[in-house]
């Protein structure tokens, strides 16, 4: 048992070390500022500017959680506070099925539904012409993908809130909506933050579906209707063809390291914020 447990604990550490060693070559050949803060991505010329990828990842993740967050919160509130038991029983398997659909299927669905929708319906509203392979298409697909995860966690969290609390608040003359707004959401806040946090972690690392609809152009996106090229897509698209170009494999390892460290740092901060929120209840 201790052996298996130590395997579990060692994996991320070993992973981090390997990635660091592999990507150190890039650090040695290029100044840090040039790696993180320039946008020129020309592997054959030896230019590896990660800024477009980092920004793409941040934007698409932010957009996905921005869309999925409120949808999940209101759905979870409805299911736990208003819905009849029967509806919850029907919804639970539906959510589980959504969570179980393979990522590539979401990608295909994105290509045949969301991309044309963006290109033919949404973009013309803003008088923009686009193929549809854009930040917004990626954000929508990603939002749909993380929805079942966030929703499931939120439902679990809202169920743990004792009914005495709503009963007590109702007895003060509060309406059902006031109970939800002032008490239930507030009480569940640490849980809601952690659910959104897990959604961010998932969205940040999601690869295939995003890669299929996001456009993959190594340029800093200027708006919702520009293509983006997130870090996971960069790795997945180029792994294999990197051998011929010097420093290319090291650069991709660097991309992986950035992903790894960002998720680590993000988890760390969401834990801290959850701790503070819990203490203030």
């Amino acid at each position: 048992m201790i052996v298996t447990l130590s395997l579990v604990i060692l994996t991320p550490i070993v992973m981090c070390i390997c990635l660091s060693v592999k990507s150190s070559l890039l650090f040695e050949s290029l100044p840090v500022g040039k790696i993180f803060f320039t946008s020129a991505w020309e592997p054959s010329k030896g230019n590896f500017g990660f800024l477009p990828f980092i920004l793409s990842s941040i934007f698409i993740t932010f957009l996905a959680v921005l869309i999925a967050g409120p949808v999940c919160l209101f759905s979870a509130l409805y299911l736990t506070q208003y819905a009849r038991v029967r509806l919850v029983r029907i919804m639970q398997p539906v959510i589980d099925i959504l969570a179980g659909i393979p990522s590539v299927v979401y990608g295909v669905w994105g290509i045949i539904v969301i991309v044309p929708f963006v290109s033919n319906v949404v973009a013309p509203l803003f008088h923009i012409q686009t193929t549809g392979y854009t930040l917004i298409a990626g954000g929508i697909v990603l939002a749909v993908m993380i929805t079942p995860f966030i929703l499931n966690i939120l439902i679990e969290i809202l169920r743990t809130i004792p009914s005495e609390l709503s009963e007590a608040t109702l007895s003060l003359g509060a309406t059902k909506w006031e109970v939800i707004k002032h008490v239930i959401v507030r009480k569940a806040k640490p849980g809601i933050v952690s659910a959104f946090g897990l959604g961010v972690s998932r969205a940040f690392g999601e690869t295939i579906a995003v890669l299929m609809v996001a456009g993959n152009v190594a340029k800093i996106p200027g708006g919702l209707f520009d293509p983006v090229y997130p870090l996971p897509a960069l790795i997945a698209n180029n792994y294999g063809e990197m051998m011929s170009i010097p420093l290319y494999d090291s650069a991709l390892m660097m991309a992986a390291l950035i992903l790894f460290v960002s998720i680590l740092v993000f988890n760390f901060f969401s834990r801290i914020s959850i701790y503070h929120l819990e203490r203030n209840l």
């Binding site: 609390l165 009963e167 003359g173 507030r186």
Partner: peptide
């Protein structure tokens, strides 16, 4: 709501509001 306001409730386990 008005009816409930007329009846203060004290439950088995105290349920302080998260404030």
């Amino acid at each position: 709501n008005d009816l409930r306001r007329k009846m203060g409730l004290l439950s088995q386990r105290p349920a302080p509001l998260p404030m």
